[in-house]
């Protein structure tokens, strides 16, 4: 299984939205998709129609590795598997502060925890895991990056994103991770956005994806209505952009599998 981490150096960049949308779109492109939430906010299930935060999920494994947590994954009608963070309690609260700190420490000590975990997941065909993360830097995002074959950095066209991007970029370079940068929520009407995009293009070069996702007020509306944005507004530019991005990712996954097969053949 190939793993794609979806990270961002600023908050509110649209990571969870893109994770959910791309999971659906990649399933349409005949990939077995597991959407993983490596984010203690525990919100991914809202994108697949749940109304309450998930109780079980990745965190269950951290708390008691021996527990059978495989049932924590949900499956939606379109065939996407969702593995939320979990840990919600009956009163609507999450894990208490001590537990959260213990989890974070555990993650910090075991850098390859998520990678080992995902390695145990066996899905057929050109399968892919999309890992949603909290804002980088954080232990959770670091877990996802370690596990990833491809890091998709979501960049909103904001000044702060430009300011924080170089650090993330050098970190990814140091780790030797392949990265693709995707501008999200771009409004062509905004001169600032246009200028920042030009700046990003200058600094990132070919690593900046040609598919920039346009800003669309239909995206939060779709979440509020419990709909998939791509399906509820198929003619919107943002949906077109996401389709383009999904096709690019699908090609990347297939090539990664082909390349992997080749290197395996070469070493044998």
């Amino acid at each position: 299984m190939k793993t794609i981490a979806i990270v961002s150096p600023v908050g509110g960049a649209g990571r969870s939205m893109l994770t959910a949308a791309l999971a659906g779109l990649l399933t349409e492109r005949r990939h077995a998709v597991l959407a993983v939430e490596c984010d203690p906010r525990n919100v991914l299930t809202f994108y697949c129609g749940q109304r309450v935060p998930a109780r079980q999920g990745l965190v269950s494994h951290v708390l008691s590795p021996t527990d059978d947590w495989s049932e924590a994954a949900l499956q939606t009608d379109d065939g996407v598997l969702w593995l939320p963070w979990g840990g919600a309690r009956g009163d609507g609260r999450g894990p208490d502060a001590d537990t959260a700190a213990a989890i974070a420490t555990g993650l910090h000590l075991q850098a390859t925890w998520l990678r080992d975990l995902l390695a145990r997941v066996d899905l057929a065909g050109h399968s892919v895991a999309l890992v949603d993360t909290p804002t980088w830097p954080s232990v959770h995002a670091a877990q996802a990056i370690t596990a990833a074959d491809l890091v998709m950095v979501v960049v909103p066209p904001e000044p702060l994103a430009c300011a924080t991007l170089p650090r993330l970029r050098s970190e990814l370079k140091a780790l030797g991770k392949q990265a693709v940068y995707v501008a999200n929520a771009v409004s062509p009407a905004s001169q600032l956005h246009t200028d920042i995009l030009a700046l990003l293009r200058g600094s990132l070069g070919a690593e900046l994806s040609a598919y920039r996702v346009h800003a669309d007020s239909g995206i939060p509306e779709a979440l509020a209505r419990d709909e998939s944005f791509v399906h509820s507004a198929p003619h919107s530019q943002a949906a077109h952009d996401m389709h383009g991005l999904a096709t690019w990712l699908s090609n990347w996954i297939r090539q990664a599998y082909a390349g992997g097969a080749q290197t395996a053949g070469g070493s044998a």
């Binding site: 409004s187 062509p188 669309d216 239909g218 919107s236 530019q237």
Partner: peptide
């Protein structure tokens, strides 16, 4: 790309 006043976009 059409950008409508309500912030929605249409690819055309």
């Amino acid at each position: 790309t059409l950008v409508l006043p309500n912030g929605k976009t249409i690819a055309c």
